[in-house]
Design a protein around this nucleic acid. Structure first.
Ligand SMILES: NC(=O)c1ccc[n+]([C@@H]2O[C@H](COP(=O)([O-])OP(=O)(O)OC[C@H]3O[C@@H](n4cnc5c(N)ncnc54)[C@H](O)[C@@H]3O)[C@@H](O)[C@H]2O)c1
Ligand SMILES: NC(=O)c1ccc[n+]([C@@H]2O[C@H](COP(=O)([O-])OP(=O)(O)OC[C@H]3O[C@@H](n4cnc5c(N)ncnc54)[C@H](O)[C@@H]3O)[C@@H](O)[C@H]2O)c1
Lengths: 216, 216
DNA sequence: ATGTCTTTGTGAACGCGTGCACAAAGATGG
DNA sequence: CCATCTTTGTGCACGCGTTCACAAAGACAT
């Protein structure tokens, strides 16, 4: 039986082994002391807990440059997501095939959501249309939204929204870039006072620190 | 002189006003007690600290579905990013105009980076090509990379990488979605304890192995 | 069986970010 | 010039996530 120890996994992932064990312990006691974790069983348990064993139908609304790219992207299917429908407001797009399936008109949005039991929606419309598209999705039964439009969406309790803001990703890089440039000559004079988060760490983690406020 | 109080800003941003003030204090004492912050001056200070006053040239490598969408996206320019060049390995694409500029061949990658003083690169190639593209970018002088390919990139110290993984965004939504579904019947008694989200109580249940977390 | 050796699972300590509460600063009016 | 009122800047405490450290569980050999 192929096994791995928390120590090996932690080293591979670059994290603390105690934390890894504690995290695993929240899923249950799936390890064997003195041996480690049964790889296959562990993978199954984590997959199940993360919802990867289920098949989630999603709709993409707004089939422009970005929406079409998403529709064509094969990486979703391999993670358990199935593109159930592509929806656009442009009558000229209706029926046109994108990624092997016909684009449908927003008039049918509610029916599409309902017929396919969709609970996850992706918004790739212009910012101006995002909120109203969001409202219709929510009214139709969608309870999770991935938003690419550069707008803050307002949703009722119980609905999750995740916003992908590519400009902010670049801004974060630019911020560190600027810091690198400054360090060369800044010599970091004396100081010594208790200063803050923004300073030192270049974290590798997915989310770095993201400020709360910023104008357009 | 138009001003805002930390209280107003905090309310607008949905955060705590004390935290907001403390964050601002790291930039310096730009507020006036009894009055608030001079809007224009504050915006300037934050913009400067974030590097938004600079103009950053970026290159996009891999002009496929996603790369083309990014090239066409107008949201970058408004945040101080200028697409300096589009690069692809496909000879058929060379010279072809995308977003109003000709696609250039990877053969010229090093020269393009150098000529334009580019320090930020975007990778939108297939996963298989990402690491070698990354290596060339870094060797040519790029020190910040935004990676869309589903691969972990290895880079030398001093180089920042941010990975955008859209599948993970969907997985996070699906995870919460799954949880919502389970709660309906899970007799979730208002918790209150300081346990991690996944926690609850999973100690080996009646049948020994399957944790009580998610009935599915 | 009993002992040894490995690795888990977790109580307790630690560190850090967040929020509270308030003194000080400065504006404004009398 | 003093009183009052508003809002900043920050010391301090609290809570949460991370890490340490170790007892106990189990495998494996004798
Ligand atoms: N392209 C990118 O790389 C990129 C990057 C970051 C953010 N974004 C954002 O993503 C969104 C889409 O970008 P894009 O480049 O694909 O734009 P786009 O103009 O190419 O596509 C927008 C599509 O939405 C459709 N649409 C408009 N109103 C609609 C409505 N009410 N209901 C349904 N469909 C509607 C349009 O017909 C069009 O097909 C924009 O908000 C943009 O700011 C794009
Ligand atoms: N399309 C999406 O919505 C999406 C979403 C998430 C992630 N991604 C990832 O983004 C990447 C691009 O996706 P896509 O849909 O645009 O793929 P695509 O196949 O449409 O485009 C890839 C482009 O990269 C070019 N290319 C290949 N090797 C290259 C090299 N060595 N140097 C320079 N260019 C090279 C190809 O010629 C092609 O134009 C993939 O890794 C994909 O997994 C895409």
């Amino acid at each position: 039986m192929p096994t791995v120890s928390s120590e090996e996994l932690a080293a591979a992932a670059g994290v603390n082994s105690a934390k890894l064990r504690k995290d695993f312990s929240y899923l249950g006691s799936y390890g064997t002391r003195g041996v480690g974790y049964d790889v296959e069983y562990l993978v199954y348990q984590i997959s199940r807990e993360l919802g990867l064993t289920q098949d989630w139908p999603v709709v993409i609304v707004g089939i422009g440059n970005l929406g079409a790219a998403l529709a064509n992207y094969g990486g979703f299917a391999s993670r358990g997501f199935r593109v159930a429908a592509l929806i656009d407001a442009d009558p000229a797009m209706a029926g046109k095939p994108v990624a092997g399936m016909p684009v449908q008109h927003t008039d049918d949005l509610e029916r599409i959501i309902s017929d396919n039991g969709v609970s996850i929606g992706v918004i790739a419309t212009p910012a101006g249309a995002a909120q109203q598209v969001c409202d219709r999705l929510v009214a139709a039964g969608v309870t999770s939204i991935l938003n690419f439009a550069p707008t803050v969406l307002t949703v009722p309790d119980g609905v999750d929204v995740r916003k992908v803001d590519l400009s902010i990703e670049l801004q974060i890089l630019a911020f560190h870039e600027q810091r690198k440039a400054g360090e060369e000559s800044a010599a970091d004079a004396a100081d010594g006072t208790a200063t803050p988060a923004v300073a030192k760490d270049h974290r590798k983690g997915p989310d770095g620190d993201v400020p709360a406020v910023m104008p357009a």
